[in-house]
């Protein structure tokens, strides 16, 4: 076995232009120091991994707690009954209908606006000031707090256009909120379409719109869908803008048209959580509603992941 210490005491002979110089390097290897460094490395590895796991533990506790609290409250009756001031009789049917109504507005509005904007930015806009301006705009819009969108909706949709706190007002507000997500993800999807496909189409005498419609969009659609589903799941869970629009606390009537007042799943969670001070059972109702909301989101996200995996890397 060679002693590592001797390695550091080798003598190097470096000769330059006939002048014989002898440089002697003595490197003393400090075993204690190396061991300390390795130990520190191992300790930090544990600390770092624990930090990562910390997030998971919290997630697990959160899910467990909510599951326990909702146990016994989440049943078929809960899903099909309407709101009531008596916790035992209360259900979230109205909130489910409200959330579905919101989606019926958000899906077409964001898809048309978002995909069209993305097509403009990626396929039509020349790399100039206009494109840069719109791009900065969208990225800034994505970082505006949702409560501000609530104020915009309150002023423009509720008051100016007199839509009140209807499904339409809520849906339009939500659409503007998630629009940047749809735009950015659609842009990514369109960017990912290889340029040689566009070239092939142009070389066949296709014009731009034909190329976009027949070649670019069909290839980009899985990506656009994935992004849109994620945007939609953001819209389903958002609470603040709807609260700002002034959704009434207790709505016993099921909305029939998009002009009706409504309540939605997150709103219901909010009001029930606030009211736990009055009636402790409301916490169970809130937890049960959260389970429903999370299940919906889970299904949507799984769907998005399935689409993403199925269509990934085709070229």
């Amino acid at each position: 076995m060679m002693d590592f210490n001797t390695i550091g005491q080798k003598t190097f002979n470096l000769s330059t232009k006939g002048v014989k110089k002898v440089n002697t390097y003595k490197i003393k290897i400090d075993h204690d120091r190396i061991n300390r460094r390795i130990k520190l490395n191992n300790i930090s590895k544990v600390v770092f991994s624990l930090s990562t796991v910390f997030a998971l533990i919290v997630l697990a506790i959160l899910l467990y707690r909510i599951g326990v609290q909702s146990y016994g409250w989440l049943n078929f009756k809960f899903l099909t009954k309407n709101l009531s001031i008596f916790p035992e009789k209360a259900g979230i049917y109205g909130a489910i209908i409200g959330t579905v109504g919101l989606m019926l507005i958000v899906i077409p509005v964001t898809l048309v606006l978002g995909v069209a904007t993305a097509i403009y930015l990626e396929e039509y806009a020349t790399r100039g000031k206009m494109q840069a301006f719109i791009k900065i705009n969208i990225s800034n819009l994505a970082s505006v707090p949702s409560v501000i969108f609530g104020l915009l909706g309150l002023t423009v949709f509720s008051r100016m256009l007199n839509l009140g706190s209807s499904i339409l007002a809520g849906g339009l507000t939500m659409s503007l909120l998630v629009l940047p997500i749809v735009v950015v993800s659609s842009q990514e999807a369109i960017k990912a379409v290889p340029n040689f496909l566009r070239e092939a189409s142009y070389a066949m005498g296709a014009n731009k719109w034909t190329t976009v419609r027949k070649v670019v969009l069909p290839v980009a659609i899985p990506g656009i869908l994935t992004g849109s589903i994620l945007a939609l799941s953001r819209a389903i869970g958002e609470t603040a803008p709807l609260v700002v629009l002034g959704i009434p606390t207790l709505i016993l009537r099921i909305p029939k048209t998009i002009m009706d007042d409504f309540t939605a799943l997150p709103i219901q969670i909010y009001y029930w959580t606030l009211d736990t001070v009055l009636t402790a059972e409301y916490a169970n109702l809130a937890a049960a509603t959260i389970v429903v909301l999370l299940l919906v989101l889970f299904i949507m996200n799984s769907f998005a992941i399935v689409i993403r995996n199925k269509f990934q890397k085709r070229f």
Partner: peptide, 11 residues
């Protein structure tokens, strides 16, 4: 018509 360097059929 044009044929390119890398085969580029549509998917």
């Amino acid at each position: 018509g044009m044929v390119f360097q890398k085969p580029n059929p549509f998917p």
